[in-house]
Deep mutational scan, measured.
Amino acid sequence: MALNTPQITPTKKITVRAIGEELPRGDYQRCPQCDMLFSLPEINSHQSAYCPRCQAKIRDGRDWSLTRLAAMAFTMLLLMPFAWGEPLLHIWLLGIRIDANVMQGIWQMTKQGDAITGSMVFFCVIGAPLILVTSIAYLWFGNRLGMNLRPVLLMLERLKEWVMLDIYLVGIGVASIKVQDYAHIQAGVGLFSFVALVILTTVTLSHLNVEELWERFYPQRPATRRDEKLRVCLGCHFTGYPDQRGRCPRCHIPLRLRRRHSLQKCWAALLASIVLLLPANLLPISIIYLNGGRQEDTILSGIMSLASSNIAVAGIVFIASILVPFTKVIVMFTLLLSIHFKCQQGLRTRILLLRMVTWIGRWSMLDLFVISLTMSLINRDQILAFTMGPAAFYFGAAVILTILAVEWLDSRLLWDAHESGNARFDD
């Protein structure tokens, strides 16, 4: 018995066209964080690309023209004298008006014999932002004059995390709450300039795509075929072959399989920071003279006294001054041990922890910024005066060393310790 099946006739004509040209192939790229070699397709503007294995951002879609970056830099340069030299806060102490600005706080630190601690604050609040705007201006002028731009481009990517104007702005709020127990506070004209400078700096850093600047100024022929001998440069993120001198053909720094002496430098910085954190938390970090009496505060006791007036601000200072430094030390110690013992479990967790400490590390400088600003506000000789204690130097040095330890660690070593050939990683 035959089955009668109805015929289905399409209502619209289906047209099949042959592909007349070869589909576009992607360029081969190595991930600078996990060293995976993959094919990167062509990316349009405002599109980002991520590593298929570790999800690290390979290409950032946010990109401004150099002219727009230069305009932002010149605007920031105009704001800087007002943000640093004009009063941020006014207080009335014992019937006398006192003005506080950024430069005055750094000068008070240096004047009291601790120039190293003052230079830490100076670099993060004044030096690094000033280098940022002058570097962008150098790129703008240098591109037109045919100057060598490689050193500036190499420095810009590392400079971003040292620009800490946003953290200093939080420190202004913390210092205001600490001082309000002794005097009446009012915002100064410099505060508005400083807030504007923070906003412009944040926007500029978020749109400063150094890798795209490398592509514009020093374009290189990408690798179009897969080759395990391809290496990625950690300076400019170019994937290719080393030249005859073993250097990256684009930025001219040595092109090595792994960062040289990464573990040794990381261990040295980490152990030194552990040693410095002990006096930083045991010795007094601030000293207040009130009517001839002397009151010393460690980091913890200062947080407890701050909690009596504002528990939320005390929580912020606790996280930045105690929780973050010790968390960074514990995480980095764990990561280094996992590399030495070739741990194969929990790779995803370790990668996330490394990215976390990379982002939060700079916030530990908050305590030094609060001390710097408070020193310029309260300084009335023996009637009422505020000065920093010996722990300030140890704390600042420990924070900087932990930042350097994270920067010096080559994250690809975590993958080397893991089993080879993993296309995915999980716990």
Rank of each mutant, 00 (worst) to 15 (best):
V174P: 01
T201V: 11
I274W: 14
T239C: 14
L401Q: 09
N281S: 11
W359S: 14
L271D: 10
I177Y: 09
K160G: 09
Y168R: 00
P249K: 13
G61L: 13
G173D: 01
K178D: 04
R294P: 02
T11I: 06
M304V: 09
T349D: 08
L377K: 00
V275G: 08
L37H: 06
L205A: 13
T327D: 01
P10E: 07
V102E: 01
N291Y: 15
A269Y: 04
Y28K: 09
P32G: 05
R62S: 09
Q180I: 11
W408S: 05
L413H: 13
I299V: 09
F141S: 02
S321H: 00
L413M: 12
T117L: 02
T201A: 09
Q33H: 08
L366W: 01
S420P: 11
I400W: 07
T67C: 12
V121N: 10
A307E: 12
A56D: 07
Q108K: 14
W92L: 02
F395S: 11
G61A: 09
V203Y: 09
I19R: 09
T327P: 00
M356H: 10
N148Y: 03
R294N: 03
A73K: 09
G240N: 14
Q33V: 11
N310P: 12
R221V: 11
K160T: 06
G95P: 01
E42M: 05
I43D: 09
I274K: 14
K160N: 09
V198I: 13
G293K: 10
G235T: 04
V163M: 11
H46F: 08
W214R: 03
S338H: 13
W84N: 06
S119M: 01
L213P: 08
S309A: 10
L156W: 13
Y50F: 12
G113Y: 07
V163S: 07
M80Y: 05
W214D: 01
S286Y: 01
A2K: 09
I58D: 02
V203G: 14
D410P: 02
L354E: 08
G315C: 15
V203N: 13
A196C: 15
M72G: 03
T239S: 13
F326G: 09
L149T: 14
Q186D: 05
V152M: 01
A115S: 13
L347I: 12
D243A: 15
Y241W: 10
A100N: 06
G240A: 12
P81W: 05
V399H: 00
P6G: 11
R348G: 13
T239L: 11
E407K: 13
I351Q: 09
T117G: 04
L169I: 11
P284E: 08
I383S: 02
A397H: 04
V189Q: 08
L234K: 11
M109D: 03
R62W: 07
A312T: 15
I98T: 02
L132H: 05
K111E: 13
A417N: 10
C54F: 00
L69V: 07
Q108A: 14
M103D: 02
I360E: 01
F217R: 15
P81T: 07
A70N: 12
R355Y: 15
F318W: 10
R59F: 05
M1Q: 00
G142I: 05
G95I: 03
L40T: 07
L300F: 15
M1P: 00
M80Q: 04
Q180N: 11
T134S: 13
D416W: 11
Y218H: 07
Q47T: 05
I287Q: 08
R362L: 02
A115L: 02
L323C: 15
K57E: 08
H261M: 11
N209S: 12
T387K: 05
G421E: 02
T110H: 05
R53G: 09
G315E: 04
N101H: 05
I14W: 05
M332C: 09
L139D: 01
R17I: 08
S262P: 07
I287Y: 04
L69N: 04
L337M: 10
A423M: 10
L290I: 12
G85T: 06
M120C: 04
A83E: 03
L230M: 14
Y138V: 09
I299H: 00
I126F: 15
D427V: 12
N379Y: 02
T224L: 13
R259V: 10
S286W: 00
E419D: 12
L197N: 04
W140F: 14
L306D: 00
A128Y: 01
P284R: 08
P254K: 08
T117W: 01
P390K: 07
L352C: 10
F238D: 13
L93A: 01
L270H: 02
I116H: 15
L159M: 03
T387W: 07
A56C: 06
E157Q: 12
L77Y: 03
E211F: 13
V232P: 05
E419M: 13
S65C: 05
C31E: 00
A175Y: 01
R250C: 14
F318Y: 10
I316E: 00
I311A: 14
T5F: 07
G146W: 03
N379D: 04
I14T: 11
T239R: 04
T387A: 06
Q244M: 13
H207E: 10
V174S: 12
R226M: 13
G190L: 01
L404P: 01
K342Q: 12
A312F: 12
L156I: 12
